[in-house]
Simulated assay, not measured.
Amino acid sequence: MLRQIIFPVLLGIAGCGVLIWLGLWQIDRLAWKEDILANINARLAADPQPFADDVTEADDEYTRVTLSGAPTGQELQVLVSGTAAGTGYRVISRFETEDGSAILLDQGLLPLDGKAAEPLVAPMQVIGTVLWPDDQNSSTPDPDLSENIWFARNVVTMAEALDTRPFMVVATATTPADPRLTPLPITTADIKNDHFEYAVTWFLLAIVWAVMSLFLILRTLRPKDA
């Protein structure tokens, strides 16, 4: 009889062990992600610093900055939905700073029916956050260049298209404000952190596996009808 239950017992222990390990791994990932989010929140809560164009992704992403200059009127429009301002086009502009650098400026959301409106081309003060977004994945369509409709932000591609430095400042506010646009400031609410839900899922699966293994063991031990 003992020999008959060796396999289901080993199967139950192995399965539960793997699922519990996956749950614990997600708990570790949760702590790692929360540390990252705390660091980002600290940067977003800091006072904005004067912009310097020697920023690097490793040291300066999510740093708040102030800068002066003017958009040139050249812009890329990224179709987005689910933002705080609704569905529309993120406007990524070529922005020339007072010292002559050209950078990418995410000015905010343009309503779907606003594509024909003229951009504000005027000197402005900007408060924003330095970012290197790459929203593309393998299923992202190529941009429709004839209609100026993009489907993801990609710093490298957009910098080449607008002939700018390969990083972006996401505007929190501009003075004066472009009346077409609603700024979309960066918050950590936009950064996914599903590790707790994944951990709960793995632990629940471990419980289910244990119950199924126990059922299999009891069924194996049940005397067979003559």
Rank of each mutant, 00 (worst) to 15 (best):
A117W: 05
S146H: 10
A85Y: 08
W150G: 14
G108S: 02
T83M: 00
Q136R: 15
I127R: 11
V121F: 06
P123H: 02
R90V: 10
T83V: 09
L79W: 10
P123E: 07
T129R: 07
G82M: 07
V155T: 15
A152Q: 03
G88A: 05
P111E: 08
V78H: 07
G114Y: 10
T129I: 10
V130I: 15
K115C: 05
L104C: 06
D144Q: 04
V156C: 00
V121M: 02
W150L: 11
P143Y: 00
V155R: 03
L79G: 01
L120V: 05
N137H: 12
S93L: 02
L110A: 04
V155A: 02
S93V: 04
P133V: 08
L105K: 06
T87L: 00
Q74W: 00
D142M: 14
T129A: 09
Q136I: 10
S138M: 12
I127Y: 02
L112F: 03
N154M: 08
T140F: 09
G108V: 03
P119V: 10
T140D: 11
G100E: 10
G88P: 05
E75A: 15
M124T: 02
K115S: 14
E147N: 14
S93A: 15
K115D: 12
L76N: 07
Q74I: 00
L105M: 08
R90Y: 11
I149D: 01
I92W: 09
Q107T: 14
P111M: 10
V78R: 04
D134E: 12
S138H: 09
K115M: 15
A116E: 15
V130P: 00
W132N: 04
W150N: 07
L112Q: 14
F151R: 02
G108F: 00
G82K: 09
T140S: 14
E147T: 09
S138V: 10
G73F: 00
P119A: 11
Q125D: 13
V130Q: 08
Q125V: 00
L110F: 01
P111W: 06
E96M: 12
A122H: 12
A122L: 10
D144H: 02
A102M: 09
P123C: 06
L104A: 08
P123R: 02
P143I: 03
P119G: 05
A85W: 01
A117E: 14
V78E: 05
V155D: 03
L112V: 14
T140H: 13
T97V: 04
P133A: 07
I103L: 11
V78T: 15
V126D: 05
A117P: 06
T83S: 15
N154L: 09
W132M: 05
G114A: 12
D142N: 13
L109P: 03
N148T: 03
S81D: 14
D134L: 07
S138I: 11
L145Q: 12
A117C: 04
A117F: 03
L104N: 05
E96H: 04
Q77V: 11
N148V: 08
P133Y: 02
Y89I: 05
D113S: 14
V121L: 03
D113R: 08
P143E: 03
P123W: 07
Q77T: 13
S139L: 14
R90T: 09
D106M: 07
A152N: 04
L105Q: 06
G128S: 07
E75I: 01
V156P: 00
V121Q: 09
T87G: 02
G114F: 12
W150R: 13
W150D: 03
P111S: 06
E98V: 13
V155E: 06
